[in-house]
Structure formats: C-alpha cells, structure tokens
Simulated scan of single mutants.
Amino acid sequence: MGTDYQRAREELGRRLRELRMDCPEGRLTGVQLAQRLGWQQSKISKLENGRQTPTDDDLRAWSEATGQPGAFGELRSRLRGFESHVRSWRRLLVAGHGPVQETWNTLIGESRTLHVWDTFAVNGMLQTADYARGVFERLAQFRGSREDAEDAVRARMKRQEWLYRPGRQLNVLMWEGALRAQVCPPGVLAAQLDRLLGVVGMDTVRLGIVPLDAPLRLFPGNGFWVLDDRLVTVEDWHAELWLDDAETIALYRRVWDTFAESAVFGAEAQQVIARVRRSLKV
C-alpha cells in the first residue's frame, strides 16, 4: 500500500477519533461508540488507526452516532480524496465491467500519447473482440462480479478508434509471456496474434516485444499505463492505482524506457509473435 494512501487513511482515522472525543453530549469511549453502531469494538480501533478503509455508510453512521451529522460531507470528501488513487475492484465492479471500460474510454480519449507495459495479457487497445470477451468472462467469474462481457467488449472495441485519430501515439511493450498466456481457446489466441502481426508498422502504434530470453535490467513486475505526462495507472489484484504526482510519473517512464532497451521492434517483433503463433496447437 502506497505511503501517501496510508498517510491519508491515518489522517482520516484521526479525524474520526476527534469526532468521538468531541461528541456534543460528552466524550464517547470506543466501546460506547461500538455499542451505538452495533459494531465490533475492533472495527472502531481499526478505523481510527488507519488500518481499515471506511465506506460511505460507515462515515455517515459515525457522524450521526457522534452527534455531528454535518461532518459527513467533510469525511466523505477526505475519503474520495485518497480513494481516487486506490480504486478498489470490489467497488468499481458493482455495476460490472462495462462502466469501468466506459470510464477508460473517457480517460484515453483525453490522452494523446500512451506508454504501456503489459506482462499478463495482450494490450486492450490491440485486442480482438473474442480475446477481450474471454478476458472479461474469466475476470467476472473469478471476482464474482456482474457478467456483462458484451457491454465491456463493445466499450473496449470503441476505445480502439483512438488508434485511427491523427496526433495519437500508442507506445506499447509486451512481455512474450503475455503473448503465450492461454486465457482463451487456442484458436482465439491465434487470431489475436494475427491481429498483432498486422498492427506492426501502423504509424500510430509502436509495438515492442520483450522476448522471454532477453536480458532484463528489471524484473517484469506489474503492467502499467502512462497517459501523457499526467497520470499513471497500475492494475493489481485488489485495485487499480491512479498515480498523478510528477515524481512517480517520471519513475514509471524510466521503467518503461528500461524495458524498451530489452525489446525488439518491427520485423524482429513480428518474428517473435510468429514464433509464438506457430507453437499453438490449433
């Protein structure tokens, strides 16, 4: 968990403690507040010490139980302030993958230059509909989220129109392992690799492949996106991280440049993709 995020959570916890201590009818102990709320006392402790992230309902209940309902707006703003950087999949996917993809459409639409490092799957900007469908179906099944693969696929395919707008540039590096990951039937993966072979040479796409046997100066780590010079997004199992401070953005660009030193482009990239394509039993 990032230091800035944890610090913000601890500050929110201190504010919650202040509300408990400044209750208009007299200071409440943690046990007394827990009884009012019908919570375990341990939850009070975790929230006040920044070891648990509250929900909107938690904050509303806390402000009302401490006799200060007007504080809810402030508490909610604090929560939104640091949750904008850690976007929990559990919350994001309540309405399914479709709305998440539409949010990404807006985000990408506002960007002109993308630098992407992919380690686990073919980049979404270059996916076929069948490949994307397989990804969304597996993720929905794994996370137990709403099954709306078709809505998500349509949104992702719409986003690819960005590649055909003048002045746009997708700089994408993919680890060879992402090409080999059989997250879909072999026939679907084969068609996906054919699609990649076709985008090599597009003027809006710079596609690099890092072969499995290439010397690496860094371990592959998580995939990430750098959008212009204003935002980095990193996908993890529990959340999607949005990082917008200049120092962090510069760090991820340096990481991207480092992996680019191990990548092959153009005809050499096509050779790696074709080699993976031939290895499939279709």
Results as ranks from 00 to 15, higher is better:
residue 2 G to F: 15
residue 4 D to G: 12
residue 6 Q to S: 14
residue 9 R to C: 09
residue 11 E to Y: 06
residue 13 G to K: 05
residue 21 M to T: 14
residue 23 C to F: 04
residue 29 T to P: 02
residue 30 G to R: 11
residue 31 V to R: 15
residue 31 V to H: 08
residue 32 Q to A: 15
residue 33 L to V: 13
residue 35 Q to W: 07
residue 37 L to C: 06
residue 39 W to K: 06
residue 43 K to C: 00
residue 43 K to Q: 05
residue 44 I to C: 11
residue 45 S to R: 10
residue 47 L to N: 01
residue 50 G to E: 12
residue 50 G to L: 10
residue 52 Q to E: 14
residue 54 P to I: 09
residue 62 W to D: 09
residue 63 S to H: 01
residue 64 E to K: 15
residue 69 P to C: 12
residue 72 F to T: 13
residue 73 G to I: 02
residue 77 S to T: 14
residue 78 R to I: 11
residue 79 L to Q: 07
residue 81 G to A: 08
residue 83 E to W: 00
residue 85 H to Y: 12
residue 88 S to W: 06
residue 90 R to P: 04
residue 90 R to Q: 15
residue 92 L to K: 01
residue 93 L to W: 07
residue 96 G to D: 12
residue 97 H to V: 00
residue 101 Q to L: 02
residue 103 T to C: 05
residue 104 W to V: 06
residue 108 I to L: 11
residue 111 S to E: 07
residue 111 S to K: 03
residue 117 W to D: 04
residue 123 N to Q: 09
residue 125 M to K: 01
residue 127 Q to S: 08
residue 129 A to V: 04
residue 130 D to M: 01
residue 132 A to S: 05
residue 133 R to F: 06
residue 133 R to D: 13
residue 147 E to F: 09
residue 148 D to M: 10
residue 149 A to L: 09
residue 151 D to K: 03
residue 156 R to T: 11
residue 156 R to I: 10
residue 157 M to C: 00
residue 158 K to E: 14
residue 160 Q to D: 08
residue 160 Q to K: 05
residue 162 W to F: 11
residue 168 R to Q: 08
residue 172 V to F: 02
residue 173 L to R: 00
residue 175 W to L: 12
residue 176 E to S: 00
residue 179 L to R: 03
residue 182 Q to R: 15
residue 183 V to F: 13
residue 184 C to V: 15
residue 194 D to V: 07
residue 195 R to V: 00
residue 195 R to G: 07
residue 198 G to R: 13
residue 198 G to I: 04
residue 198 G to M: 10
residue 202 M to R: 12
residue 202 M to D: 14
residue 203 D to S: 15
residue 206 R to D: 06
residue 207 L to N: 03
residue 208 G to M: 02
residue 210 V to A: 07
residue 210 V to D: 08
residue 216 L to W: 08
residue 220 P to C: 05
residue 221 G to H: 12
residue 221 G to C: 12
residue 222 N to Y: 12
residue 227 L to N: 06
residue 231 L to E: 00
residue 231 L to A: 00
residue 232 V to R: 04
residue 233 T to R: 05
residue 238 H to T: 15
residue 240 E to C: 07
residue 244 D to G: 08
residue 244 D to W: 00
residue 246 A to P: 04
residue 249 I to E: 00
residue 249 I to Y: 01
residue 249 I to Q: 02
residue 252 Y to R: 02
residue 255 V to N: 03
residue 255 V to D: 10
residue 258 T to P: 03
residue 260 A to K: 13
residue 265 F to W: 05
residue 265 F to S: 03
residue 267 A to R: 14
residue 268 E to Y: 04
residue 270 Q to N: 10
residue 281 K to L: 06
residue 282 V to M: 14
